[in-house]
């Protein structure tokens, strides 16, 4: 049952003047229950200790290890080798800045967009340590959690034609994040304020609705729904003035 896996891995160390981007070949005996996490570490430890890649949780929860696996963005730690053919081709995620080999800088990218959309609860209230917490319906809490599940792995960004074409495109994960705050009654931002943030070509109107993002999301976040919902809300908000306000009253009530 044992196979010899043939890896073709993208190599480039930007810090090394002698390094040129190229593909490098490795062979490895496959083992039971092998994941790309186990395989890449074995290659590093036994064949090439300079090989760069990022793993943290090795359990598909931290979002560190996304890479392009045989042409498709995915989490390496949860990719089992037995689901792959003998030949495995690995590239770093596009769009993000390359650190070296398979390692890219998703952290800086996500922090940047979080700042841009001010991804925190905007409230005029202050916290009262002596008061009971504000009540919330459990279904709503679950709904917020659903959208909060994104692990910022970057797969959806790497798979997105728009993101690859325009550097300033916020991307599906970011629009999903907005949706998360949008449905959260603790965030007091109005539709107009949200419109300022994402009612542009950088935001929802840049999206071409081609579905690339949702397909690759390892958390199965319903990105298409969220993109659609936000696009419709923002389209209505863009009618501006009265209509927008009316809608905003209506939608806040509905929350």
């Amino acid at each position: 049952m044992s196979r010899t896996l043939h890896f073709e891995i993208f190599r480039y160390n930007p810090m090394d003047p002698d390094s040129k981007p190229h593909m490098q070949t490795y062979y490895l005996e496959e083992k039971d229950n092998m994941t790309l996490f186990l395989a890449l570490n074995e290659i590093r430890e036994t064949q090439d200790p300079s090989l760069q890649f990022d793993f943290v949780c090795r359990a598909a929860v931290c979002g560190s290890c996304a890479m392009v696996i045989n042409g498709r963005p995915g989490l390496a730690c949860k990719t089992k080798t037995k689901d792959l053919p003998d030949k495995i081709v690995l590239h770093p995620l596009p769009v993000f800045k390359l650190i070296g080999d398979l390692s890219v800088d998703t952290g800086t990218w996500f922090r940047g967009v979080a700042k841009k959309i001010e991804a925190w609860v905007h409230t005029t209230k202050t916290f009262d340590p002596n008061a009971l917490e504000e009540r919330m319906d459990n279904d709503l809490a679950n709904e917020i959690f659903e959208l909060d599940r994104c692990i910022e792995c970057g797969c959806c960004i790497a798979a997105c034609g728009t993101a690859r074409m325009r550097e300033d495109f916020l991307g599906a994960a970011t629009i999903n994040k907005i949706a998360r705050f949008y449905i959260d009654p603790r965030d007091e931002r109005t539709d107009e304020e949200y419109f300022e943030v994402i009612g542009t070509d950088e935001g929802v109107f840049g999206c071409m609705g081609l579905l690339g993002c949702e397909d690759v999301c390892p958390k199965q976040i319903p990105l298409q729904d969220q993109l659609g919902i936000m696009r419709r809300k923002m389209a209505i908000a863009s009618l501006g003035g009265k209509v927008g306000k009316l809608f905003s009253v209506f939608s806040k009530k509905k929350k």
Partner: peptide, 8 residues
């Protein structure tokens, strides 16, 4: 208060 969606 800061936004954690605790189960209720």
């Amino acid at each position: 208060f800061w936004g954690v969606p605790w189960n209720r």
